[in-house]
Write a protein that binds this DNA or RNA. Structure first.
Lengths: 156, 156
DNA sequence: TATTGTTATACTCTATAACTATA
DNA sequence: TATAGTTATAGAGTATAACAATA
């Protein structure tokens, strides 16, 4: 298929010392720059809450799917077993999540938010709203919706 | 300031077991999902070239700024000194970059692309074009430009 | 004193492989 | 046999602190 977009610039440069400015018209780089900005802003707004993006997502999932087990959580977060284990260990140590036994299957735990976890999630939800507002502060509501739509089409 | 966007859904849920679906209308999550997709696609298209995004960016910068030193490269890549050192070590070991002495300042090296590095960058440039085309395959040229513009406004 | 590059060290996030207990 | 959770280990990518050589 033809390549409809050119990222190369300075086509007048001599072949032997050609310049490749890959960053100048690259959607990939633009996505990365924007995501770095979002990541920084996330910690600016939620850093005091002892919640990384992954930890917050886990709490959010647990608020919607109480009693989910680690394997299912790993699948939802798209991470491997040992990774979710460390995540749940950390959340348990912070007092946000409890592992509870399941009657009839002693292999698995049911994961639940603790009262503290629920409180923290409420605070995080507020902070996340502020994060989203700040992130999109230069966009109108229509432009933000448009951006979401375009992103979803890149995400395929 | 007022919060113009709401990420919360299911407002009819009881307060004691409120659900927080942070992912449903979050620009932050949309950015992350899209970037993960881009990252995967990058390795699909450029994985065989022994170049990570950071390594490719370094080669691209060296093609434009031949003779740059490590400290300057670190600044351009926005990474710390020891990090750029490892990066340059790896690029040197792959045979893409050479450290050359600088007359008049024996503290620093001038970094240059080798012939192999230049060849690899040409191949990477082609592969990167294919990557960009695939990434934006569901967007028209106008939509792609619009997305870039909206992203640049989120990035500050 | 300041700069360049380096070493030593450590942290986060992720993974795979092999294991135990249970089903 | 298959599943849930765990342990051990490793690798990529990043950082800070302390240092040597040089300016």
């Amino acid at each position: 298929m033809p390549s409809p977009k050119k990222t190369q610039v300075r086509r007048d440069a001599p072949a032997a010392s050609e310049h490749f400015d890959l960053q100048s018209d690259s959607l990939g780089y633009a996505l990365r720059r924007t995501q770095i900005r979002a990541y920084d802003l996330f910690f600016e707004k939620l850093g005091a809450l002892d919640l990384s993006p992954a930890r917050l997502t886990a709490l959010s999932l647990l608020s919607m799917d109480a009693g989910i087990n680690q394997a299912a959580l790993a699948k939802r977060l798209n991470i491997a077993g040992p990774s979710v284990l460390k995540l749940v260990d950390a959340l348990e140590q912070s007092g946000f999540v409890s592992r509870e036994t399941v009657e009839g299957d002693r292999r698995r735990y049911a994961l639940h938010l603790t009262d503290l976890g629920r409180e923290r999630l409420v605070a995080a939800h507020r902070a996340h709203d502020a994060f989203e507002a700040e992130l999109a502060k230069h966009l109108s509501a229509d432009e933000r919706a448009q951006l979401m739509e375009l992103l979803s089409r890149v995400g395929q």
